[in-house]
């Protein structure tokens, strides 16, 4: 039997710390389709993105997620990536001392591909989005502008060729030119590679170029309204309150939730640490 090709989210519930955020999300993304998930602050958009990729601190409490028949929730993050899922982060992490190139090389090795030859791919991908190839060998995201970080995300997506891409606010921090380059690259990926896109966004700017097949409105941890690209236009014009009221929900009831601090200091400085605290024991 041929596996049905679809990223399928069914009845997904999740929490961060003690707070339930997702209350049963249902979504299906098929190859080549563009889906937009829009919603007010605190609606659970970012939680949905992170849960799909298995970020520590986000706990699934029910439901299922399958990628072309693979149970994503049963496998670790890196295997989800290997299975064909890509998550573009809203705030791409800075990784001092590690180049984008070396990350892609390790990812290639992990799927049994050669770790050589991808540099040409990265250089070509950089050119496609009007990005300087120097970013390929620089420490990943360190001291880059918000827009450069987002282009780095696209660069990696282009090299990794995922089946489905979840884009968490890819349009935030981008200037008009960068937004156009990124949207165009995504558009091409859907057409050339059959990439399925789940674009999580606040605004409809991204959707002016990257035309969505479906728009889903997430509020209070559930999809509350769905429609075609005309829904995005309505949201732009009327705001969430009107659209959601029509669907019988009030917008923005849920407080913004911050993921739990799982550690205090990373490799970088910790400006918030208490300078008078006892030395480490």
């Amino acid at each position: 039997m041929k596996t049905e090709r679809v990223l399928r989210i069914e009845g997904l519930t999740a929490r961060v710390g003690e707070t339930d955020i997702l209350h049963g999300v249902d979504l299906e993304v098929r190859p080549g389709e563009v889906h937009a998930v829009m919603g007010p602050n605190g609606s659970g958009k970012s939680t949905l993105a992170h849960v799909l990729m298995g970020r520590p601190g986000y706990e699934v409490t029910g439901g299922s997620v399958t990628l072309d028949g693979i149970d994503l929730l049963a496998i670790p993050t890196w295997e989800r990536a290997r299975a064909g899922l890509f998550l573009a982060l809203q705030h791409p992490t800075e990784v001092p001392g590690v180049s984008l190139e070396s990350v892609i090389a390790e990812a290639a090795l992990a799927v049994g591909r050669s770790d050589t030859g991808f540099r040409d791919i990265l250089v070509a991908e950089a050119a496609r989005i009007g990005f300087d190839e120097k970013f390929v060998s620089r420490p990943l995201n360190v001291d880059l502008s918000g827009g450069e970080k987002k282009r780095n995300e696209m660069l990696m997506m282009g090299a990794l060729r995922p089946q489905y891409a979840v884009l968490d606010e890819i349009d935030s921090g981008l200037d008009v030119d960068a937004l156009a380059a990124v949207s165009l690259r995504l558009q091409e990926a859907t057409e050339e590679d059959g990439l399925g896109v789940l674009a999580i966004t606040h605004f409809s700017r991204l959707l002016e170029i990257l035309e969505p097949d479906r728009v889903h409105v997430l509020a209070s941890g559930r999809i509350q309204a769905e429609g075609g690209s005309e829904l995005a236009e309505r949201l732009e014009a009327e705001g969430y309150a009107g659209v959601l009221a029509e669907a019988g929900v009030s917008a923005g009831l849920q407080a913004e939730v911050t993921p739990p601090e799982v550690h205090v200091a990373g490799f970088g400085d910790d400006p918030f640490a208490d300078p008078l605290a006892d030395p480490v024991g």
């Binding site: 990729m53 290997r82 990696m156």
Partner: peptide, 10 residues
């Protein structure tokens, strides 16, 4: 940082 690299398939 670890999650970020893992999310790229490492």
């Amino acid at each position: 940082q670890r999650f970020f690299l893992e999310s790229r398939g490492v």
